[in-house]
Simulated assay, not measured.
Amino acid sequence: MTADARDIMVTAQEVARLRDAVQLEVRDIALAALIRHFLRASEEVEGPGVPSLSPEQLPMADDVREIMTAGEGDLRNLDLVELARRDESELSGYLGHVRRAIEGL
């Protein structure tokens, strides 16, 4: 196993634990690969003097736009997690743990 593959598998184990899994699944590996990709990309950035190569921001769905513009005060990470939990996608299993961690439960 290469070092990169090992990193993905270690991260996948942690991802699976986030949803209180009894076994590691393909979706855990998929999320771990994305996490590792973005971590690696952020490590490669040399500093604030480097111009951004990011593409333009994507248009937002109505639910996302609403949470970005509605409400009083700052948008919190918990607000975004709750929005994602309401979607009830296959990733919802991860978000209960994330919500509890944010709230300090």
Rank of each mutant, 00 (worst) to 15 (best):
101 A>H: 08
79 D>A: 02
85 R>W: 01
82 E>W: 05
43 E>A: 15
103 E>G: 02
89 S>K: 05
94 Y>K: 06
37 H>R: 10
93 G>I: 13
29 I>F: 12
69 T>P: 04
64 V>P: 00
82 E>Y: 03
11 T>W: 08
73 G>I: 02
98 V>E: 00
68 M>Q: 01
63 D>T: 04
62 D>Y: 01
34 L>Q: 11
103 E>Y: 01
66 E>A: 06
14 E>I: 09
22 V>W: 09
24 L>C: 03
68 M>D: 00
90 E>D: 11
10 V>E: 05
53 L>E: 07
91 L>T: 11
77 N>M: 12
26 V>S: 15
57 Q>K: 08
60 M>D: 02
19 R>G: 10
71 G>N: 02
87 D>I: 11
42 S>T: 15
19 R>E: 06
100 R>Q: 04
19 R>I: 10
22 V>R: 08
92 S>E: 13
24 L>P: 09
90 E>I: 09
24 L>G: 04
19 R>N: 11
80 L>C: 02
86 R>H: 07
77 N>V: 05
32 A>V: 12
68 M>L: 01
98 V>I: 03
48 P>Q: 12
92 S>R: 06
64 V>D: 00
76 R>L: 08
32 A>C: 14
33 A>R: 14
46 E>T: 15
89 S>N: 04
7 D>K: 08
64 V>R: 00
27 R>W: 05
31 L>S: 05
72 E>R: 02
1 M>D: 10
100 R>A: 05
52 S>R: 03
56 E>N: 12
58 L>V: 00
103 E>P: 00
35 I>K: 10
94 Y>F: 14
84 A>L: 09
8 I>Q: 05
19 R>M: 10
41 A>D: 10
34 L>K: 04
91 L>Y: 04
2 T>Q: 10
27 R>S: 07
62 D>G: 01
61 A>T: 09
13 Q>N: 13
52 S>K: 08
74 D>H: 10
35 I>D: 07
96 G>F: 15
23 Q>D: 11
29 I>M: 15
70 A>T: 06
80 L>V: 01
12 A>Y: 13
9 M>K: 09
70 A>Y: 01
66 E>D: 05
19 R>Q: 11
26 V>D: 14
97 H>A: 06
51 P>C: 14
45 V>W: 12
90 E>M: 08
3 A>C: 09
54 S>W: 13
6 R>I: 04
33 A>W: 08
60 M>Y: 13
